[in-house]
Design a protein around this nucleic acid. Structure first.
Ligand code: FES
Ligand code: FES
Lengths: 158, 158
DNA sequence: GCTAATCTGTACTTTATAGTCAAGATTGCC
DNA sequence: GGCAATCTTGACTATAAAGTACAGATTAGC
């Protein structure tokens, strides 16, 4: 259960573009340098973000990437889904092997129920966060996190 | 953000051994067949579970694997940590690149705050689940999940 | 139209994960 | 002791993910 490189850098690139403000744009070399990844790799990641509909690209001189929508309309959960897929999806149980009593896939499996619960917990946080929320400093973000109803908010406070 | 093969099969193997009951034991060929993985691979996974202190192995004829502790004393969160590591740990931000305003690693990063919140949400589910909880059918497990305070429980009900 | 800056797409290389294999060590039983 | 069933270990191969390279297409400005 790790973040993939796509997820880690993809989200950071998106935040970086968001920092450029309404209509502001950044080029691949700029993003690349800011995030400390190679231009080639940045291009690869930005392609995913573009295909996901989160950024728009302008070619040619004076080109660059800009947000496809206002930051508050970009839900982080959707971004992560585009960059790295979900932890648990319905087809998950079609792909793994094992027949007997536990994982009869689609009949009766307590493990599946647990994964589903974890996915719900993750979604609960990521579906509430928008890019707008990430365009603030860590302290403000921590305050925001505490506003999430439920444990994620509560326990972060310690 | 995917489950690794270790996590997926490791947990299922552990549940399988749990099904053998108090003091009951299973051999690698048995586990392998039940879970539909090769004996070699089952052995590799069981080694991780053994080193994590979740199962004990007996060699020789009449050997096999058995739970190292009662099922209710095995917290699934710990099992997953042993099998696949955590989503977010403090050293996470030491390893990624990028210097400028967002990810100054350890100074001020809203993204980090979000990952931390996700980790907390995951822990909230996995730290409450024990192997005992998984030794029941899916319906009972769903009921159990609903007892988790907060969103994971609530939203699974739909 | 030319040039330089930019994105786009595909193919490639490198590295990490997944999965296999075989030789060795331990134990119970006869 | 000898045998067969079992776990243990490290090295090996295969596959997927991460990261790079490059040739092509688009655009602004002159
Ligand atoms: S059937 Fe998918 S985890 Fe058991
Ligand atoms: S410093 Fe680690 S995610 Fe930004």
């Amino acid at each position: 259960m790790k973040l993939s490189a796509n997820e880690e850098y993809g989200l950071r690139c998106l935040v970086r573009i968001g920092y450029a403000g309404e209509g502001g744009s950044l080029t691949i070399p700029e993003i690349s340098q800011a995030e400390g990844v190679s231009p080639s790799y940045a291009a690869k990641i930005l392609r995913v973000l573009r295909k996901g509909g989160f950024v728009k690209a302008a070619r040619g001189k004076e080109g660059g990437y800009t947000l496809a929508r206002p930051a508050e309309a970009i839900v982080i959960g959707n971004v992560i889904d585009a960059l790295g897929g979900r932890l648990f999806e319905s087809k998950f149980c079609d792909s793994h092997s094992g027949q007997a009593a536990i994982c009869t896939r689609s009949v009766d499996c307590s493990v599946r129920s647990l994964w589903r619960a974890v996915q719900v917990a993750v979604d609960h946080v990521l579906s509430k966060a928008t890019l707008r929320d990430l365009l603030q400093n860590e302290e403000d973000m921590n305050s925001w996190v505490r506003t999430i109803p439920g444990p994620a908010g509560l326990r972060l406070v310690q």
